[in-house]
Computed example of a mutant assay.
Amino acid sequence: MSRLQFTVPPLPHYMLCGPMSHAPGRRHASRRDTGVFDLLVVREGCLYMGEEDRTFEVEPGCALILRPDTYHFGTQGCTERTSYYWLHFQTTGSWTVTDDELPRHGLEPYDEKRTQAMWSYSTHTFHIQVPQFVKLLHPNKMDELFEQLIQLNQSFYSGNAKWSQQVLFQEVLWQLSASMAKEESTPAAACAELAADYMRKHYREPITAQELGERLNFHPVYIARCMQRIYGCAPMEYLLHQRIEQAKLLLLQSDLSIGRIAEEVGFNQAAYFTSCFTRKEGISPRQFRQRFSYG
């Protein structure tokens, strides 16, 4: 699946949208290098679209994003009355096209510059992805969002209206992203997500592979395979990552002792916590607190 990947901030921003309908025989206009992203959401009928060397049949409940830097065109006329929404948006940030899914975990090795950016007032960018073509998970919800956006067009010069439109547009992007995630959902992904969710909620408690299997009603070996496939790590490695991340927050946001923090995040012994933290982050908990604390 082709994905449009945006580096944020800044977030992509809404420009204008509206309804459109085509009688049978009419095809979508051909355009080149429009300079804006063009989102099409079909309500009835079918749009037959091409972009460079790819073709799409955009049926009811489907969405297609045409890129600002390509040639797009109607490949044939509509075979029946076709109605759809169009929406133009743009970004002042960087973006790219990729077939690769964003990683679902954050088990990167310690990097001092990255860590300093995260724990300081520097802007820390990240990536979001939306599908270029997708069958919508909640088409009725998308219709509601477009109708609200269109209604606000009547007050386009109002600052409050523009603000409301930007908020609604972010929900449009979220609906697209959620639809992509649903299409890619597999039994392995569902199992891995259940395991990850359980460990995020119960990281303070002692957890073994056997107990995890009993709680989720899956064999521990199967859970381990799913976690490795989806998250790229074993369950206990994921659990350790969650505990260390929570420990970082406590180190910076509290005056608790190292020993107390170890207990709070699920370690029985402070020495073992310090060993795990140092091995994973490259510095000790005390050094981390001193280096990234302010005031």
Rank of each mutant, 00 (worst) to 15 (best):
M1I: 03
L4T: 03
L4P: 00
V8M: 05
P10M: 04
L11D: 13
L11N: 13
P12K: 02
M15R: 13
C17P: 03
P19I: 06
M20F: 13
H22V: 02
A23T: 12
P24L: 06
H28Q: 11
H28K: 10
A29C: 03
A29V: 12
R32M: 10
D33H: 13
D33G: 01
D33V: 03
G35K: 05
L39K: 01
L39I: 03
L40P: 01
V41C: 12
R43K: 15
C46P: 02
Y48H: 15
E51L: 02
E52D: 15
E52Q: 14
D53P: 00
T55C: 08
F56C: 03
V58Q: 06
E59M: 12
P60W: 08
G61L: 07
C62K: 13
L64K: 06
P68N: 04
Y71N: 09
Y71F: 14
H72R: 05
G74Q: 08
G74L: 11
E80V: 06
T82V: 09
S83A: 14
Y84S: 09
W86M: 03
H88Y: 15
F89P: 03
Q90G: 03
Q90P: 00
T92S: 15
T92P: 00
T92I: 14
G93E: 02
W95Q: 00
T98Q: 00
P103H: 04
P103N: 06
P109S: 05
P109A: 08
P109T: 07
Y110L: 04
E112H: 11
R114S: 14
Q116Y: 14
A117C: 09
M118R: 15
S120C: 02
Y121G: 11
H124W: 09
I128D: 01
F133D: 03
L136C: 09
N140G: 09
K141T: 11
K141F: 10
M142N: 02
D143M: 10
E144D: 13
L145V: 12
E147Q: 15
L152I: 05
N153A: 10
Y157I: 10
S158R: 07
S158Q: 13
N160Y: 10
A161R: 02
W163S: 14
Q166I: 01
Q166F: 02
E171G: 00
Q175L: 07
S177Q: 15
E184T: 12
S185W: 04
A189M: 12
A190D: 14
A190H: 12
A190Y: 04
A196Y: 09
A196C: 10
M199P: 07
M199W: 09
R200K: 14
R200I: 06
R200P: 00
Y203A: 02
E205S: 11
T208C: 04
E211V: 09
L212S: 05
E214S: 13
E214F: 01
R215L: 08
L216N: 08
N217L: 12
N217I: 03
F218W: 13
Y222D: 11
I223W: 05
M227N: 06
R229C: 00
C233I: 04
P235G: 06
R243W: 05
E245Y: 05
K248I: 08
L252R: 07
S254H: 08
I258M: 14
I258T: 15
G259V: 04
R260V: 11
I261E: 08
A262C: 07
A262M: 05
G266W: 07
Q269W: 08
A270S: 15
A271E: 13
Y272R: 14
F273M: 07
S275G: 00
K280Q: 14
K280C: 10
E281A: 05
G282I: 08
G282V: 07
F288E: 09
F292D: 08
Y294P: 00
